[in-house]
Nucleic acid binder design. Structure first.
Lengths: 307, 307
DNA sequence: ATAATAGTGTCTATAAGACAGTATAAC
DNA sequence: GTTATACTGTCTTATAGACACTATTAT
């Protein structure tokens, strides 16, 4: 095979030997983990089945910057470590869970505002969304000395309509810690402008009045994006099953959909729709009043559907 | 306001002053642009309207590594430059277009294989998908001395079925330059494994037999991902309109959908479905046989639909 | 018995798909 | 006239939503 030479007459090998790594100043690269689960709410009436809620794992920062604020778990990426591998490592550090669904979410550092998102230096952060079944978490001990807590998450629409020429939607994103002691809240404002011939959407985040605590960096963006992604994908992918144990009842599955879509579903219709995705098992659950059948994910489904 | 101090007793200001940037070795950060457009195919029969095809902009590399191969336009990100800003800059360099639809696509550098995607050093690359109306491109002169060309892109399914326990789908991704001189082809193999309780998808890329030319780096992944993204989003977003001039006929719009979804649509049904997205104008096109009405994007639409 | 959950049947409204038809231009 | 494109009406089928009903348990 003949050797290609560049403008300077160098072969690839020669070029690589002369390549000066230190010539350019480089940004730092980190990963941030949006670790989500769906868990049972505390139950007041023992006769009723527990409601479910979405939860996100946050870590209290023990260092500058944003010392004392709550942040998504994350950290710098090693030189020989893939972004996804770094994400796995972080999850293992925080939760001891290794078998977990993971997908790339978004990379922060897009515009001037985000260029200054970290006061130390320019930091580009790739985020991953991870979904875990709550039952895998129970026995885990956190290995770090950091304070770590699950926060319930809720995003609810507060306004939708025209403001002048633009169309505006606002939401409230609220987080509350395990014990209810810490409350974090942001207002999200989405503006749709008709920049003919196509529309442009811009999103603004602001701390909500009356919420003292805040998130570190621009991590609210990732929580918001993750919730949206989940809402979209749960309709046409098997993502919901990553949030449940292998065996589940259809009522449990329905509650997962309800908490993610943030609306009540009619039982009969829900069952008809998800029927091809699940397989009935012989196992029976005794928990509510009438016993329920346990179901499993039906691996044949994606073939018929996605294929 | 009281000053928080960390474990070492430092305030944030003191911490930042003592923060040593050079302590850690850092990966390099680049952006890659997937610039797509839909254009008229060369016409044989003058009486017929031209067919449309999807096109992607590629640059012939004049430097190591991958010297002589075709690549997506891209390059290193400046320290004070946002990723999106860098993407804009690249597009302006290559096409002189400034007003363009842009969305973040994917960040490469996930796993061990991708850690070694660039022989110079560890490179993390965030990619953007840009969609342009062909008519905006015509008068542009490329400012770089590099060879630049639009390639037609086609992804067609070649197999779908079970292979042992797993479900497999294969595709052929083929690119062909403007003048038909350069042909690039990859086989894509998607394997769905039923890693209970949820399925895992893995994708493999291989050069197609009989295709001599190749893409630089792992850029085939970005083209593949971009086409998928476009196919998904065109159904529920106004993305199609970014690929057309402000005024267009419904037949033109339909052809854009057809080339992206890679299937023929029935006229009557298509028109019924997109009716709320468009606005009829008074302008008439004389091009085919019976003159056609020009339409515009209807900015009211997203409100009713997305809101 | 009553409350709570599990599970099914069916009517209706809406959307998607198929296809036949009419209309208006170039040649 | 023929051919190619533009545009509409309507029947059929599939899907989504609403709601009423039965079934089985704990208390």
């Amino acid at each position: 095979m003949e050797l290609l030479r560049d403008k300077n007459g160098l072969t690839e090998q020669e070029f690589l030997q002369s390549y000066d790594l230190a010539k350019y100043e480089k940004p730092s690269v980190t990963v941030d983990m949006l670790l989500l689960t769906v868990g049972d709410k505390e139950n007041t009436d023992i006769r009723k089945l527990p409601e479910k809620e979405l939860r996100v794992l946050l870590v209290k920062r023990g260092e500058h910057p944003f010392l004392g604020n709550w942040a998504l778990p994350g950290g710098f990426v090693g030189m020989k470590e893939g972004l996804r591998e770094a994400a796995y490592r972080k999850i293992k550090d925080e939760t001891n869970v290794t078998d977990i669904y993971l997908e790339q979410l978004y990379t922060l550092g897009e515009d001037q505002e985000e260029v200054e998102r970290d006061p130390r230096t320019r930091v580009i952060s790739t985020s991953y969304m991870a979904l875990v079944d709550e039952s895998k978490l129970k026995p885990s001990a956190h290995r770090t000395t950091d304070e770590v807590s699950w926060f319930s998450v809720k995003k609810k629409p507060t306004f939708s309509g025209k403001q002048g020429y633009a169309f505006v939607e606002t939401y409230e994103l609220t987080l509350e810690s395990d014990d209810g002691a810490i409350k974090i809240g942001y207002q999200i404002k989405e503006v749709y402008e008709s920049k003919t011939p196509y529309p442009v959407k811009t999103t603004r985040y602001e701390k909500l009045d009356g919420y003292e605590d805040g998130l570190a960096f621009d991590h609210y963006k990732l929580i918001d994006k993750g919730l949206e992604r989940l809402k979209n994908k749960i309709e046409y992918t098997p993502l919901a099953f990553t949030l449940l144990p292998e065996y589940f009842t259809l009522s449990e599955l329905q509650k997962v959909y309800e908490v993610i879509l943030d609306k009540k579903l009619l039982k009969a219709n829900f069952r008809r729709k998800i029927a091809p995705m699940v397989k009935k098992t012989e196992i029976i659950q005794k928990r509510g009043h009438r016993p329920a059948n346990y179901y499993q994910f039906n691996e044949e489904w994606q073939h018929d559907f996605m294929g």
